[in-house]
Every structure is written in C-alpha cells, then in structure tokens.
Design a protein around this nucleic acid. Structure first.
Lengths: 359, 359
DNA sequence: TTGTAAGCGTTATCAT
DNA sequence: ATGATAACGCTTACAA
C-alpha cells in the first residue's frame, strides 16, 4: 500500500538488513534464505517475512564468491540468427533452467576471435559449465585456439554439441546423418536421378565433413558414383548458397537433384533459382538439411533432413551435468531424420534446365 | 611446449599469486591489471608477464562485488526463436559489446512468469542496465507484474524496446508503422482491393495496438472504411495464423487482400493456404510485417513491412547508456518500411476464392 | 609510485 | 538451533 518515496532508491538491502529486521543474526538469516536444514520454524517465519517485506534480492556475486558456484552455464553457438542454432539455444536454455541453471548465450558469429572473447568472459564469470559448438581448429596451426586450450585445461566441465574437434577429448553430442542421407539418396535414385549435386559446408566444421562423407557413402550404397565435380564447397551462409545455385546451373554434368548441407545456403540458393525461373520440384529436386519455416512454406515444400534440436539440447545439458557431477559421459550421436515432401516426389528424373533456363 | 600435467587443475590462480610471482603487492598488481595510471613501467612489465605466465583470469564476481558494477546488461525478449527478436538480440549484443558490455539474453517465451524469473535473476546478478521487450500488463489487475514494478522502482537503468507499457514512464524505442501501412493500403487499393483484412496481435502487446490503429488510419486516408468483421485478433504465433487463414476463407465479406501483423502468424497462414490451394499473389494479396527469409523465398515473394532491427538495437543500447550516464533520453520512434514485392503487384483485385477454393 | 588494510555481501566454520 | 567471525578475490582509501 505504501509508496516508496525516494527516487534514487538503489536497491541496497542486504542480508544484514533482513537479519536485523527479523531480529536474528546474519548467519541465521543466511541459513533460512538458502534453505539450510538447521533452522527453527520460528526464525524461518521471521526471516522470510522480513525478506519479503524489504524486497531482499541476494547478491549473486557475493554468494558465488563465497560458495564457488554460480549456478550458471554458458552456451556458445555460431550464429544466433540461424534458426538451427536458436532452436538449439532455446532447448539448452529450457533444460538448464529446469535444472536450476541460468544459461548465458554467446554468439561466435562464425568468428574465432568472438568465440575466444566470449570464452574469456565466461571464464572470468566462473560459470559452472560450458556447452560449446566449436568453431574448428586454427587454419594454419591446425590446433585449437589458445583460449580454447585454456578452457580445456582449466578443468571446467565442458561438452561440445553439434560439432566436435578432431583429437580433442571432450564428450560431444553430434548428429549422424548416414541413415537420413541413405534414404534421401535412395529416394532420389528411385525417382530416376543419376547426377546428384551436393552443396557442403566449410571444412573446419565437423558437421560439413560428416555430411559430405555420409553422402558419399549413401551414393555408394545406392550404386551411384561420387563425383567431385558435383561437390560445391560453401560456407554455411546464404551468399555461398547463391553461388552454388548458379554453379549448379552451369555444371556440365547437368545434375537434376541437389542436396544442401544447411538452411541458410538453401535459402540463398532458392532465391536465385526463383529469380531465374527454375522451378524447384519439377525442373530440379532439392533436399536440404535443417527443417526451418522457410522450407515448410515453400511451394512445393522442400524435403528436409532435420534434427530434433530439442533432444540435442536435452542430451547436451544432461551430458554436461554428468561431467559436473564428476562422471564421464560417452559421446552420443543423434540420428538425423529425413522427411520426404512433395518437392521430391514431383521431381521425377527431370534433367535440370533442358536448355530452357540455362542463360 | 610443456604439458600441464595435473588432471584436476582447477584454475585457482588469483591476483595474489600474480602479485607474489611479480614480487609486488596485490594493490600494485590490481592497479596494473585494471589500467590504473599510478603504476611504474617496471612493475607494469613484471605484473603483466606474471599474469600471462600464470594464465590469470580475474574473478568477475569479486571484482564487481567490490566495484558495484558488472559491465553487463540484460536483454529480455519474447521469443528467441522468432527471427524478429533474434535479429534484435544480435543487434543489441553487437552494440553493447562495442561499448564493453556483456549482454545476457533472456527469453520470456511470451510468458509473464518466465519474464519475472529472468528479471529476478538479473536483479540478483546486479546487471548495470536492462533492455526489455515488455510482455504487457497483467490481464486482471491491468498493472505491471510485481517483479516488473520492483525493477522499475529499483532505480536500475531500464529502457523498453519494440513494445512499451501504457502509463509506465520508461524511455521506449518503438516503431511507427503509420507511413508503411499507408503505403501498403494505398498500393492494395490502387490494385483494386476494397476489402482488406487484418490479422492483428494480442491486445497486451503495444505493437499490436499500434499496428491495428495505424491500419485503420490508413484505410481512412485512402477512402476505405474500417470493418471489425475484417479484423482477426491473433496472438503473434503460427497457430493463430493458421486459424486466421481459414477465417479469411470463410469470411462473408470475401476480402481479397490481407495484412498480417507478424511473420510467425503469416507463416502459419501461408502454410494453410498452400495446402488448400489458395494461390497467394493471384487469388489473394498478402502483406506481412517482418521481413524474414521465408517471405523472401516464397514464390511469389511476399510484400513486407519491415524494421531496421539493427538500428533499433543500436538506438536501444544508446538510450540505455544515456540512462546509465544519468541522462534522460527521449522516447524514439523508428519508421517502419514497406517493401513492395511482386506478390502484391500480381494480385489485381482478384476476389479470394471465387467459389473455387472455398470448402 | 607503492604497500597496508578495510570492505563489498555472502556462506562456512566453529563455538556455544 | 544460533551467533560471532573468518574467508572468498578483488578494489580503493589512506599512508608512506
């Protein structure tokens, strides 16, 4: 009912104020407020009401300075604006929160310097654990960055998610797309496609390697032959997808189907094809990784290879908590899922272009 | 070259260790490490090399416990997975980082309880400022939540972004869509559309109110009359967009054009229309708020009313820093931008359905 | 320029 | 069950 009059009333109410208001010692107040068992119902009542009355907010810095735990973890992803990662971030955050952990989301922006910057900040803040989508090894040295090494040798519980770093012994939650690509290739092949192009990611990303190698295996499994001339190496960004789209149209092998390794590249490519009048689904069959909105509302809808990001986030938090508890979790693989949509079914063996679209 | 042998080497190197390794007092070490002017070149050299040698990472808790500043701000958004907000988050983060501030991104999940939870955590962590997309007033009491009131009376620098709260005196960076909607309506009208439907957002969001009222004004400006029967009240989520899509098809007024107040609803709607065979761009003209990928790759591309989120983020951080510096910034409005795309141009006055699609 | 020491708000230890 | 007090790692008067 009463109004707090002071304008510049900085919230300076400490546990000391609560204690004296409740007529007990700070020790007792602390015990009550942090749920310590050794407290009498009487003091519990007094302290709790005093705390509420005064609007007491414990100072997290002070608390964790003393207790050496912060009840927080950090999640480092490559790009907040990529729906794949924002879905992952959301999942990690939800599961962490359920475990009483606050999540700091950091954005590497596909940039090693920003990655290191964020890691340094998190180390300073003494987070209790780290979930990292690693940006890959240094181009020249072929080693993890200095900051990453510091993280790894610091003993702070860490797990990788989505990607892994070769030769780095950290539990990783990754996806296995072998089965999904097998299905995808088999589907395309059964529709008569012989020349299937692949737009892959940068070689520093383990996901890019895994996807391409699974693709090669899938070709072999289906009696098709891999052809480097049908492999475009992109960088997981829309601009490289646009380049890939043109590359495809000019490809002498005239591929009639294409598999794209992530949604941003697919978006870049789809835009180009639409502008050039290539009808996806009839002129060209397209399958892409990442089941995002844009693929679902496309007409016809694009067939996708998707991941249960919610599950991936859950597994990541779970694994991290095991590490935090001193256990050593096994690396786990999530099975990617292929979802067939009309776009593929309607693409029966049409050779791309047939002279009509090619410039 | 040398390998750190200890497996459980928890990073316990403090400023004390640095000081003794450098042969100076902790005070001197602290001064060097935090760039205090009163330091000799000699001790600077010694301390810096010692710190590097030992891999010293200052403990952020201890530092800010003493200095009462955390060099961090919190950003509370409605939904990380909505590209609109993840773009905004990215912009805020980039500008804050440029100002030496770490950004904690929190997700209200369009839920007042999660909003309050996050705010409490941030208050505990003593962030130096808050950028908030407010979730609206309590349905019943018509008041801000208790936690929000606590934030407002705490004196901690706060600004609102995207949305505002009526009668709450906090500087807000919002968007003004009057001009964009004027253009949009004029364009539709010049194409012959008379019955333009509007799919709006929930009334607790100030953006929903602003957009609808600007739409009404735009109708009037263009000599059209507003009609409540053409107004669908959604909740900014895909599911309500799907409902709106069906509502449109069954609407007795047979609207031939529709404006949707956000991208998630538009996505829900577009999916339904595609499934029902409604050809957007010829059977129906669609304009939507939020310039996201899905609208750009749609065939035909969807006309949008977009915002420069990067600019909005910049203005938000700027305004926040002014408040932190003790100034009182004026509320600012960003002008929304209408981008015409073929989807509208190709929609010439076709009455939706014409019997053929209606169930 | 440097060192000594107090103090930030908690929790943990040790008596009682 | 409770209270006094040390301690967490750092910054900052205050002295020297």
């Amino acid at each position: 009912m009463s109004k707090q009059g002071s304008l510049l009333a900085m919230n300076a109410v400490t546990i000391k104020d609560v204690a004296s208001a409740a007529g007990v010692s700070v020790a007792t107040a602390s015990r009550v407020l942090s749920g310590h068992p050794a407290t009498s119902p009487d003091s519990r009542a007094k302290v709790e009401s005093a705390a509420k009355e005064l609007g007491f907010m414990p100072n997290a810095q002070a608390r964790s300075l003393r207790s050496t735990k912060t009840d927080s973890i950090a999640l480092l992803i490559s790009d907040v604006r990529n729906p794949y990662f924002s879905d992952l971030a959301h999942a990690v955050e939800q599961h962490a929160r359920a475990a009483g952990l606050m999540t700091f989301i950091g954005n590497a922006n596909e940039d090693a310097a920003q990655q290191d910057d964020f890691l340094a900040t998190m180390l300073s803040r003494r987070v209790d654990g780290l979930v990292i989508v690693p940006q890959g090894l240094n181009e020249e040295s072929n080693q993890p960055s200095e900051m990453m090494n510091r993280v790894l040798s610091s003993g702070i519980p860490t797990i990788f998610v989505d990607r892994a770093l070769p030769s780095v012994q950290v539990p990783a939650i990754t996806a296995n797309s072998a089965q999904a690509l097998d299905e995808a290739v088999a589907t395309l092949q059964s529709l008569g496609h012989q020349n299937i192009a692949f737009v892959g990611g940068p070689k520093h990303a383990s996901t890019a390697l895994e996807r391409y190698s699974a693709f090669e295996t899938a070709l072999a499994n289906n009696g098709l032959h891999a052809d480097e001339a049908l492999h475009f190496v992109g960088d997981f960004q829309p601009a490289s997808g646009a380049l890939a789209a043109k590359w495809l149209l000019e490809n002498p092998a005239k591929p009639s189907a294409i598999i794209v390794a992530d949604a941003p590249m697919a978006i870049g490519a789809l835009r180009v094809w639409r502008e050039l009048g290539v009808r996806v689904g009839s002129d060209l069959s397209v399958i892409t990784f990442d089941e995002v909105d844009a693929m679902l509302i496309h007409d016809p809808p694009i067939a996708t290879i998707g991941h249960d990001l919610s599950q991936m986030g859950k597994m990541a938090v779970q694994a991290l908590r095991e590490v935090m508890a001193g256990q050593k979790p096994e690396p786990e693989e999530l099975i990617s899922k292929f979802t067939l949509r009309p776009s593929v079914a309607s693409a029966k063996a049409t050779q791309v272009m047939e002279g009509k679209v090619r410039p």
